[in-house]
Design a protein around this nucleic acid. Structure first.
Lengths: 333, 333
DNA sequence: TTGTACGCGTTATCAA
DNA sequence: TTGATAACGCGTACAA
């Protein structure tokens, strides 16, 4: 490894001058500056980020806590995070959240992260307070199920979104509407379910417990759950179903196809998120558009504001859009 | 921030003892150990990783260079990387590769990364040699188009895979086979195209230049490219098309559907990678299975071997599988 | 405009 | 079994 000392020696200046040059201080004579730059070039010197972090107490790294790297919704958000972070010269360090290993986060992130972006995880209060104590900002895209004063978030207004979706289905003539939820109740999907129920009530529709399907959050488990449900009794107690995530909705579409149930003929299906695939399924999928990239940008902007200006973050809400596509039509019969 | 000194003072021992306890050295009296552990607990101490890295010259971070975080093939690989890295207590630091900013990688990764995993990028020799000089291992999942002695890789045997695929199509009766390639020639997709051409030749089939469609690597651009091609002349010069990636193949499926071309009736379509969606498209997609998770594991194992045991990495090859699904059938007429 | 010297929080060496 | 203390590479106050 080439260090600042090597450069200083090679350029025949002191270490301080090398630092000045590297950090673009304007107090170095142009001639010396060139000498130093040449030495840096010749030796292939790069400042050691760990050492710099130690001194400056800034790591230029932002932690990102995933639920599942294989979920294109979450990676879509991080695409926005990554783009914006790059503009701030920040690196992203990714971790998959595993509740049983939550305590490890404290050591993993300590001294290597200026702030942490969550994806709707409800961390244990103890963990949150640890980071709060040491002034590491936590900010969440997707509102966590369990609120905590230190963790603010940016999300769309799921109640309003669900209301629009339910009203859409109701206006088509659907009165019995099912829901496919994520069986993990502290998952960000759960927020959508809660708001769906409220929206149903506000729309004067009754949600029946046997119209609730619980699945894992992903495609295959939704496929399995729906297939089994249809095989158990092909006569479903609802004419439309809303899924807490698009991947689940795609699994439902697939299950219906394989079980001989026609979508949207026999059943209307809607999802949440508007991932890219939803406009290329057969039929294309009605869904709620979550502006992934924009929210990613906003999250990075917010957390950078916290880190560098000590801004107090607040909960904020972003606009959504109801994407009406082929998978929801008026019920037959 | 709570430091080791705070813990030492609080526990009434020297800083060295705290280190011993933290690092599980077995030379500490059980009684003192408990005292220290209690102090750590009470103060909420966590060792500062930056400081530790500085001293030990190990960062416990592995850099991962993406091409596109929004590509589920790549995130599928990193799912494997992440799982295995976790077992080694390594964190992953993600960067999207942008050729015009390649020089920044040197500073971004220096002193914060023990090794770097590439995803088939052909880095500039200058960049590679920089990391080589400082002993930072580079290892690639997916063989880069341009070989370099310092960058070994793990990949499937694309020639063999393409041969199996071409033979499959040929045995169905296809003799005119098109290819949708990625217009970026240093992209990992390009390797697949080269081997496809070799496979065609080996199978005694002629590949005609006008059967080559160039698109961006992703769904939408493939959709656009294929749509335009069909609109320009619905009579295609091939009865089957192989796409360099599954996302492109899905775009092609979608374009055919929207342009009134029946798959597989009018055109057989095949992809590469076997991403999850390919078994849920209409029709389901014939593709080459790339074992993402396993290769991710292998990549981490290999780079850990390099870092900790100084193992010399070699190119290795993993098994693939030809997934024959609904999108390829014998041509009509 | 440049150089010296200290401290950031660790680990590790060596004495005690 | 423990305690001093010297690095690790960097930024910067202060002196020159």
């Amino acid at each position: 490894m080439v260090t600042r000392d090597d450069v200083a020696r090679h350029a025949g200046v002191s270490v301080a001058v090398v630092s000045y040059v590297v950090n673009n201080k304007n107090n170095v004579k142009e001639e010396t500056r060139q000498k130093v730059l040449r030495a840096i070039e010749e030796l292939g010197y790069n400042p050691n980020m760990a050492a710099r972090s130690l001194k400056t107490r800034k790591t230029n790294q932002i932690g990102v806590l995933f639920n599942n790297l294989g979920n294109s919704f979450e990676t879509g958000i991080s695409l926005g995070l990554e783009q914006r972070a790059r503009q701030y010269d920040q690196s992203l360090i990714f971790q998959t959240y595993i509740r049983s290993e939550e305590h490890k986060l404290k050591s993993i992130f300590s001294g290597r992260t200026d702030g942490i972006i969550l994806m709707g995880q409800s961390l244990k209060p103890e963990t949150i307070e640890h980071f709060a104590k040491f002034g590491v900002p936590l900010y969440s895209v997707l509102k966590p199920v369990q609120d905590h004063a230190y963790v603010r978030s940016i999300d769309i207004d799921w109640y309003d979104a669900m209301l629009k979706l339910v009203e859409h289905l109701k206006s088509l003539g659907h009165h019995k509407i099912g829901f496919m939820a994520n069986a993990m109740h502290d998952h960000y999907h759960h927020v959508r379910f809660l708001h769906f129920r409220q929206a149903m009530e506000a729309s004067g529709l009754e949600f029946e417990e046997h119209s609730l399907l619980q699945a894992g959050g992903y495609l295959e488990s939704a496929y399995d759950r729906m297939s089994n449900r249809i095989k158990a009794n092909p006569k479903l107690p609802f004419t439309a179903i809303v899924c807490a995530g698009d991947l689940m909705a795609i699994g439902v579409l697939s299950a219906c196809k394989d079980c001989g149930l026609s979508v949207p003929g026999d059943l209307s299906v809607a999802g949440c998120e508007n991932i890219l695939m939803t406009s290329h399924t057969t039929p294309t999928l009605t869904t709620i558009h979550y502006p992934r990239k924009e929210i990613g940008y906003m999250a990075v902007d917010t957390i950078m504001g916290q880190i560098h200006n000590g801004d107090e973050p607040t909960d904020s809400t972003f606009g959504f859009e109801l994407m009406i596509r082929q998978s929801t039509v008026k019920p037959t019969g």
